[in-house]
Design a protein around this nucleic acid. Sequence first.
DNA 1: AGTATAAATGGAAGCGCTTTTAATTGGTGG
DNA 2: CCACCAATTAAAAGCGCTTCCATTTATACT
Lengths: 343, 343
Amino acid sequence: MAVTIKDVAKLANVAPSTVSRVIANNPRISERTKQKVREAMEQLGYHPNFIARSLANQSTRVLGLVLPGSASTFSQNPFFPTVLRGLSEGAHEKQYALQMTTGQTEEEIYDGVVQMVQGGRVDGIILLYSKVEDKVMNYLKERNFPFVVVGKPYKFCEEITHVDNDNFRAAREVTDYLLGLGHDCIGFIGGDLNLVVTVERLLGYEKALREAGFDLRNEYIIHEEFLREGGREAINELMQLDHPPTALVVADDLMALGVLNTLDEMNISVPDDISIISFNNVLLAEMSRPPLTSVDINIFHLGNEAAKSLIQRVENPKEPIKRIIIPHDIVKRSSCSKLDKRA
Amino acid sequence: MAVTIKDVAKLANVAPSTVSRVIANNPRISERTKQKVREAMEQLGYHPNFIARSLANQSTRVLGLVLPGSASTFSQNPFFPTVLRGLSEGAHEKQYALQMTTGQTEEEIYDGVVQMVQGGRVDGIILLYSKVEDKVMNYLKERNFPFVVVGKPYKFCEEITHVDNDNFRAAREVTDYLLGLGHDCIGFIGGDLNLVVTVERLLGYEKALREAGFDLRNEYIIHEEFLREGGREAINELMQLDHPPTALVVADDLMALGVLNTLDEMNISVPDDISIISFNNVLLAEMSRPPLTSVDINIFHLGNEAAKSLIQRVENPKEPIKRIIIPHDIVKRSSCSKLDKRA
DNA sequence: AGTATAAATGGAAGCGCTTTTAATTGGTGG
DNA sequence: CCACCAATTAAAAGCGCTTCCATTTATACT
């Protein structure tokens, strides 16, 4: 059995309560006693037991993380480790630990969250995704358990603290940018429509086109998590149209890489034949050929702010609901060019 | 305050201890009582408090995860989310949760581990890297705290349960493969030499060359975490040699992508001018141009087995030390070709 | 000196659960 | 009809810590 507060107390000739106060650096204990107790702790190699402390305090200093189901893009997308780093640093600063739910199906994940919450394992929860109808989010909201979402909640946006980019605006800007380059046939390739981020980006794209006076063409919009096989055909179809798009807005760098790849096979050159702009600006955006023009969404900050604001909320339940928008910016590389009007 | 075991006991008209036994499904409780108690639990929406249980049991059912420092490759490498998925599924099966240490510097990470261990936060620890001299590993080994490492421990390999690929052999096979394609000038591009995996792969490469009767040429070996700028120059230098290599063994897909990119800029064609083979076979290996021939190391299994064997160890301290080798296989795509001897 | 007051520390209860030990019950067989 | 045993269930202690309340000790002020 490890050394406990009692052992320290005995050695230092004080009461356990005094030792506890020394740990908390309670001002009601004299410096002399503190010193004495600290020496005893040192000597015995004492480390406070977190579990016992948690039980007494009714607080664990642990934040729960909920990842989207395993099958999703996440499992290979560098987005993930990067937010995690942000979260991790934010949590560490305030001495919080991170714990993840594990589970493959949606149901398993939900159960995991319930366990975390009702089992008192965590003080707060971070949702690393935002889906259109999400059981987990509803549950947390109903119980009024402290949580933040990374992304924009589908509903009750004003009532849920979240940190997100302005994806709508970003998509508009990006589309405008392509428009500005002279493109008038612009396609959109997005991910899972159940994810709010996809929806937002799509809406921004549509808005920009409409504002510029263009009709939306359904054939120009492709949805799928088609990082692999699926993509090939989709792109193929797209390029077989009478007026194939001369530019594409792609909702994610990893997807864009797939698109790049497929286009190359089809002998379509980027950016000469078609321009591509994508989102996230992960490392590989810079390593692809051509390097991708991509919207840097500041993934690290997304995570970092999420952790920080959750902790605030946990430590002060009266903390008001917040919506934190992380700025984005377009990093121009070589995947977009002016439309050559000769065609 | 949440509903406790006492509330349930009161409602069911039994003692708290009985409720506890019902939770554990203790055979000493009659079916009739169990039923009664379960109904009460249901009615009150009772969920056991994990913290209290952990305190009483001296066991948390939480596994600690130690990631390499944030600056490392990890933060953008899809390796990470994939092992995590493997770990996560392995842990979930046995109802364990995962908790991460957070910390940027090596010192911070070490402190985090000590907190986890001495603070009784976790029952076991998984090291997601293996460095040449690792304070954390030494600490865990010394304390005889249950842990496994993903990768091969630098020292005490026989005394530490670990799960790894046979990277030495894989590198040899890969090099032999290139040799078999007629290449006789083969370069090696590796990551951080402090990581055991880099060393192993390098050794395998060297061994293969020596066995084939070639001298090792230092100019052919590049080390750096040069995913970005650094890489450019290194490759440049390499290709300026009198006899530039006609094939490269690259220690990681992400690196290989960078290399591919740089070579393209230099107008060197893969695989016509130079063949490339890399490791890990993450998704982007398949999405690069040309698609990379890569060693699939079964990242998911690496994580999965790590979780499973740690849990075994935790639940049975007498469990013998194990070394688990996950099989690898070379996935041939289009980045390697026979050497054209015309040159 | 004597009491009021503040400062410092000790004692004990309690956080929610498990587990050991004790008590109760209902059958059995002599 | 009662001692005796197995089967159930209850009571209480304990996990290591915090914190409320009580007690002691030092300091100040009449």
